[in-house]
Design a protein around this nucleic acid. Structure first.
Length: 186
DNA sequence: CGGATTTGACCCGCGC
DNA sequence: GCGCGGGTCAAATCCG
């Protein structure tokens, strides 16, 4: 539970932008290029908490001094057969929750998202925003919520895998980092 | 004008 | 069966 895979990922993979200053551990953004890598990385059960409902974050924050916390949430079965009530396949989607510290809610990871909903969360004065990837055929979703207790903590939950390249250049990665203030574990 | 956002309604699963 | 909470839709609105 103490070892965070994204650290290894940052070291091994494209850390060009982060090479100059590597005191921050930025989980996604870069990794979104090849979600498979993320899938493999997080496939290893490192987290002690298998599935933590997002609501758990609010009242119970056990993130002592970790700037970034990432762990896999394996959803049992996310079946959304709203329109057609036929026999929908029970596709189990992988969900990855990243807990970061940022002043802004929108952490631009290079993909284009369209906001499609916003709901108030129980035990949280901040709402949760729902985004969907606008690429045709790409049903990747993400939701962003802010801890009411720690205003500076933002939890981003990704759901699904992108099946297309990134649209925006990764040059703005440093810009993304400028938006964030991540506190190292030590 | 076109695409993104806002926002209340609607839907659905679940627990009582 | 009903109410609640979470997730999504969609019409109105905003904005570049």
């Amino acid at each position: 539970m103490e070892s965070y895979p994204m650290l290894a990922f940052l070291n091994s993979s494209s850390s060009s932008a982060a090479s100059s200053t590597n005191y921050y551990n930025f989980p996604f953004s870069l990794s979104m290029e090849n979600s498979n890598a993320v899938n493999g990385l997080f496939g290893t059960p490192t987290a002690a908490q298998p599935e933590v409902p997002a609501s758990e974050y609010n009242g119970h924050d056990d993130h002592q001094n970790k700037g970034v916390v990432g762990y896999e949430i394996e959803a049992e079965n996310v079946e959304k057969s709203k329109t057609n009530k036929q026999g929908e396949r029970k596709i189990r989607k992988h969900r990855y929750a990243f807990q970061t510290r940022s002043q802004v809610d929108i952490l631009d990871d290079g993909y284009r998202w369209r906001k499609y909903g916003q709901k108030a969360v129980k035990n949280n004065k901040f709402p949760r925003s729902y985004y969907r990837c606008t690429y045709e055929g790409c049903g990747v979703k993400k939701q962003v919520q802010r801890l009411s207790k720690d205003e500076g903590t933002v939890v981003t939950t990704y759901e699904g895998v992108h099946s297309h390249p990134i649209e925006k250049s990764t040059d703005n990665f440093e810009h993304i980092l400028s938006q964030m203030q991540i506190f190292p574990s030590f």
